[in-house]
Amino acid sequence: MNNIITYSLDKHRNMFAYPEDLRDYFYAEVNDHPYVEEPYRAESYAVGYLKKGSIKMRSGLVEKVVHAPSLITIGPSAIRSFSEDSKEMQMDIIFFKSDFFLENQANVFFLIQFDFFENSDKHDFQLTAESEETFKQIFKLIRTVLNISNKHERSILRSYLYILIYEIDAVKALITSDPAVNPLFEKFRNALMKHFLRQRSVGFYADQLNVSRKYLSEVIKKHSGRTAGEWIDEAVILEAKVLLKNKSLTINQISDMLNFSSQSVFGKFFKTCTGSSPLDYRKNN
C-alpha cells in the first residue's frame, strides 16, 4: 500500500495556517479545527493535547467522541478522519516526521513499537487531573523551545518527544480494558485489520477464531450493532476511499490492489456500499 496518497507535513501546515514554517516538525495551537471528514493518511506523526471541548474522531473502523482532557496519538499509516462535536474545542498538536525523530536514534524501530500510533483501536487517552498536569507541562516545554531561537532546538525537542511518548505509554498501561467488550469481538477486529485486503469471507474469520460462522455473526452483531460482513465491507471501503484519492492510480490498479477479480466487480461492490461509483467518488473528492 505504498502508493496510497498521504497528507504531507506542508499540507498540515497550510491547514493550520503555519505555511512559513519549513522545519520537519511544527506546533499548532488550535481553536477552530479544519475538520477533515474523509479518511486519509499522513506522512508525519502527531500528538494532540485536547484541552477543551470535544471532537469526533474516526480511526480505522472505530468512531468515537473524544472529550477533554485527552491525548490523541496518530502515526503515518493510521487512517483517520475528524468532524466537529463541540463549538469550543481547543487543542495543541505537535507534528513531526520520523526522519527527524530518528536522526540520532540507533533503534530505527523505536516509534513503531508503540501501537497507539498505528492501526490500533486506541488512539485517544482520557486524562486524570494528575496526568493532565504532567502533559500540560510537557506541551508547555515543547511550545517554549519552538518559540525561541536556540541552536540546540532539534535536540531539545527530540528529548521532550521521548519523554512525551514514554509518558503516553505509561498512561496506556494504567488503562484497563473495558470488561463490557467481548474478547471474541476484539479478536475479530484484530484479525480483520490483518487480513481484510485478501479475505472478505465471514467464514474465514470464523475459522481463524475457531468458532462457527453463526456464533461469530451473533457476537459481532450483539456487541457492535453491525454484522461481521458489514465490518468486513467497511474495512475494504475505507481502504478504497484512501486509494481513490491517489489519482496516479487507475481504478483498475486499485481493484487489483484490493484483490477484486475485476474492475467491474470492484465497481459494483463500491457502488452497493457507498451509493456512488469509484469514478464519481474520485471526481467529488
Score class of each variant (00 low, 15 high):
6 T>H: 12
7 Y>W: 13
8 S>C: 12
8 S>F: 08
10 D>G: 00
11 K>L: 10
19 P>R: 06
19 P>S: 02
21 D>M: 07
26 F>R: 02
30 V>M: 02
37 E>L: 10
37 E>R: 07
42 A>R: 07
44 S>P: 01
44 S>F: 08
46 A>K: 14
46 A>N: 10
48 G>S: 11
52 K>I: 00
55 I>K: 06
58 R>V: 15
59 S>D: 07
61 L>D: 10
62 V>E: 09
62 V>P: 06
65 V>F: 03
65 V>H: 01
67 H>W: 05
69 P>N: 03
71 L>V: 00
74 I>T: 10
75 G>L: 00
77 S>M: 02
80 R>K: 14
82 F>V: 14
84 E>N: 13
88 E>Q: 15
92 D>A: 08
93 I>W: 01
95 F>P: 00
97 K>Y: 01
99 D>R: 10
106 A>W: 03
107 N>Q: 09
113 Q>W: 07
119 N>D: 13
119 N>Y: 08
119 N>K: 10
119 N>E: 15
121 D>H: 08
123 H>T: 05
124 D>Y: 11
126 Q>T: 13
127 L>H: 01
127 L>R: 00
129 A>L: 10
131 S>D: 12
132 E>A: 14
137 Q>W: 13
138 I>K: 09
139 F>G: 02
140 K>F: 15
143 R>P: 01
143 R>K: 15
146 L>E: 10
149 S>Q: 10
150 N>D: 13
152 H>R: 15
155 S>A: 11
159 S>R: 10
163 I>A: 13
163 I>N: 11
164 L>E: 04
170 A>Y: 11
173 A>R: 08
175 I>L: 15
176 T>F: 09
177 S>D: 10
178 D>G: 06
178 D>F: 08
179 P>Y: 06
182 N>S: 07
183 P>N: 04
183 P>S: 02
184 L>Q: 07
192 L>P: 08
199 Q>K: 13
202 V>P: 03
206 A>C: 11
206 A>E: 05
207 D>H: 07
209 L>S: 11
209 L>N: 02
211 V>C: 11
213 R>F: 11
214 K>W: 12
219 V>P: 00
227 T>N: 05
234 E>A: 15
235 A>S: 14
235 A>K: 08
236 V>I: 15
238 L>H: 06
244 L>R: 04
247 K>W: 13
249 L>C: 09
253 Q>H: 04
254 I>R: 03
254 I>Q: 01
254 I>K: 00
257 M>W: 02
257 M>R: 06
259 N>A: 02
259 N>G: 03
261 S>G: 04
262 S>Y: 03
262 S>H: 09
263 Q>S: 13
263 Q>W: 02
264 S>H: 12
264 S>M: 12
266 F>V: 03
269 F>M: 09
270 F>K: 05
273 C>E: 14
276 S>R: 11
277 S>A: 09
279 L>W: 12
281 Y>E: 05
281 Y>R: 07
281 Y>I: 02
282 R>V: 05
285 N>K: 08
285 N>D: 01
285 N>M: 05
